[in-house]
Design a protein around this nucleic acid. Sequence first.
DNA 1: TTATATTTGTTGCGTATTCAACAATTACAA
DNA 2: TTGTAATTGTTGAATACGCAACAAATATAA
Lengths: 144, 144
Amino acid sequence: MAIYEYDKSYGRTLGIAYTQVYRRLAKYLKERDIPVTPDQFRVLTHLWQNDSCSQQHLAEGTNRDRANVTRIIDILEREGIVERQPHESDRRAFRIVLTEKGKAIEAEAAECGRQAIQDSLEGVTPEELEVCMRVLRKTIQNLT
Amino acid sequence: MAIYEYDKSYGRTLGIAYTQVYRRLAKYLKERDIPVTPDQFRVLTHLWQNDSCSQQHLAEGTNRDRANVTRIIDILEREGIVERQPHESDRRAFRIVLTEKGKAIEAEAAECGRQAIQDSLEGVTPEELEVCMRVLRKTIQNLT
DNA sequence: TTATATTTGTTGCGTATTCAACAATTACAA
DNA sequence: TTGTAATTGTTGAATACGCAACAAATATAA
């Protein structure tokens, strides 16, 4: 069997590219003293676009499981960034709402995200990016 | 400010695509009763191509830090898949070597990897994949 | 209405990840 | 050669992730 170059495979390249973007985002957030990790950022983006949704909804929207969301909300709540409020009609669920602090963070945190992505795409043409995004979306679709 | 669609960004799409491939690989490994996680798989691929290297070398080759490699090697050693052997000329370092079991796993595990990638790329043309890989490599280069 | 199934969130467990600090060893410069 | 760097691996702490099991609440079927 010919040697398979694992480290040049699609899966590996994808993994390393993602990790690098993740670390860059973490770096920018830390530099600006925004007390949020990239994973928490992911949950927050969903809330910025969709405030006061349930943890279940957050889990679906961030491609994670409920247990995970429980713990991330625990931390965000401890940091005073979100609050758990009772759901009006379903006593199993919470409504996760942004606090003022949580809302105030958005502009700067979003700038970190934009900057990380901009860094990562330097020298890439819009056409190349379009094809790349299409492939990534296709991958997601194929595996979902 | 216009609403920024975080969930359609390059960073998010990259993250979700990677997670999906990761989960698919985990699924295939589990189905075949290969006692290795995708993260351990990553370390193993490096050893299959480059046996008996140091943990530092493994960390560089897998885009992780040394602490991480220490713990993954702990697990792989406990599972009887690799062994720590003393380095001939540097008493700080180990040589990580595959056991027979570690070598025997390769064929089947590699098949899991290939299958996961094949699943993820169904319907993607070679030309599209080429562009996508170029963008991903560029991202890695930009952020390294 | 009542019994059963499903949904929502939580918790335990094992693994993964980064950061910072540390000891032992090695490399290097004065 | 001796004192200072740097390197290698380890550990602790905090966060993250997926899976399985669980209780409480809700939905649904008999």
